[in-house]
């Protein structure tokens, strides 16, 4: 109804220049040292660099510490229900492919209660960014085992130690037909985190990024080895992935990995001997659900005229 006005407004607003502060809504209330802070900063930097219009950008989350994320972004945000960020994101993109959608999920959210949606969202391959903020533990509800908790790790629900080997979100994602972008990064290397997010954002399709991060409250030592010992980290580098040239001096273990090679990607994902970061897989040729399903919008009169013809078939 007022689309003409809003178009005019947007045309004027195109000269707006957005600074980091334009994307900041409130002071984040995560624990000091929580990995969520780094991700928030990297994302705000990405939006600034890409100059995304705040009104055309949407952050969708579920429930958990990391799902507070949208509250700290001065964009549109949808802080929904546990595990359901992806169906909501799907609905938004189906209706409004013009919006930039980011889903922010924790490991309980994505890999446990929302696992069914996760697998299907990979298959739908809708053009959006899905961030798995994986700290291997439930934080908001105070230290319960998550599907990615290391085997043997004690928690309030499994005080004798986690009974089972953890789920591997990378292997699962890479196992789904029609996966189109799978990457892993860590929150404690900001340049790699940012470079990975940037690749994810520019990929046309469902960009799944697992971000390993610390939980200072409940698993403070979880990634201590990887943080203190650069040899625990292996970089997957490629011009179509993350090159991480600035990190050459720190991380010597660098593997040139072509992200079109899904077999190699799956092998790297399975092998847990190293914390391997970079773009595992990327294929922009995969069909995108919202594109295959996108349809022209008809006016009310056009719709009713088609409906009237439809009624002819039912006429008596």
């Amino acid at each position: 109804m007022s689309s003409a006005c809003s178009l005019l407004h947007l045309a004027e607003a195109d000269d707006r220049e957005f600074k980091m502060g334009d994307y900041e809504a409130a002071v984040a209330r995560w624990c000091p040292g929580c990995g969520d802070h780094s991700v928030l900063t990297a994302v705000q930097r990405l939006l600034t660099e890409e100059q995304l219009k705040p009104e055309d950008t949407v952050f969708v989350s579920g429930i958990g510490c990391s799902s507070r994320f949208p509250h700290y972004m001065k964009t549109y945000g949808f802080h929904g229900t546990h595990g359901r960020a992806l169906p909501i994101s799907t609905g938004i993109k189906l209706n409004r492919p013009d919006l930039e959608v980011f889903a922010v999920m924790g490991d309980g959210d994505c890999v446990s209660i929302g696992a069914g949606h996760w697998v299907h969202a990979i298959r739908y391959n809708i053009d959006m960014v899905a961030l798995l903020l994986d700290n291997n533990i439930y934080g908001l509800t105070k230290m319960q085992t998550s599907p990615t908790t290391p085997q043997g790790q004690k928690s309030n629900t499994q005080p004798q130690g986690s009974w089972l080997p953890p789920m591997n979100p990378l292997s699962v994602t890479l196992g789904v037909t029609n996966a189109s972008f799978v990457a892993q990064t860590v929150e404690w290397v900001p340049s790699h985190l940012f470079a990975t997010l940037k690749e994810a954002f520019h990929h046309k399709g469902f960009s799944f990024v697992r971000i390993l991060q610390r939980c200072p409250a409940y698993l403070p030592k979880l990634f201590e080895d990887a943080i203190t010992d650069p040899e625990r980290i292996e970089l997957l580098v490629h011009p179509d992935g993350v090159e991480a040239k600035d990190l050459e001096g720190v991380y010597k273990d660098r593997v040139y990995h072509d992200p079109t090679d899904i077999d190699a990607a799956r092998r790297f994902a399975e092998d847990q001997s190293k914390v391997r970061i970079g773009v595992y897989f990327r294929d922009e040729s995969r069909p995108r659900y919202e594109e295959t399903r996108h349809l022209p919008t008809l006016t009310a009169e056009e719709k009713l005229s088609v409906l009237d013809q439809e009624f002819d078939r039912y006429a008596v």
């Binding site: 809003s6 407004h9 947007l10 607003a13 809504a25 219009k53 705040p54 009104e55 055309d56 949407v58 952050f59 949208p70 509250h71 972004m73 001065k74 964009t75 549109y76 945000g77 949808f78 802080h79 938004i92 409004r96 013009d98 919006l99």
Partner: peptide, 11 residues
């Protein structure tokens, strides 16, 4: 979403 000035997070 898309309305300028309306940014908020619903919860």
């Amino acid at each position: 979403p898309g309305s300028p000035g309306g940014m908020h997070t619903l919860t």
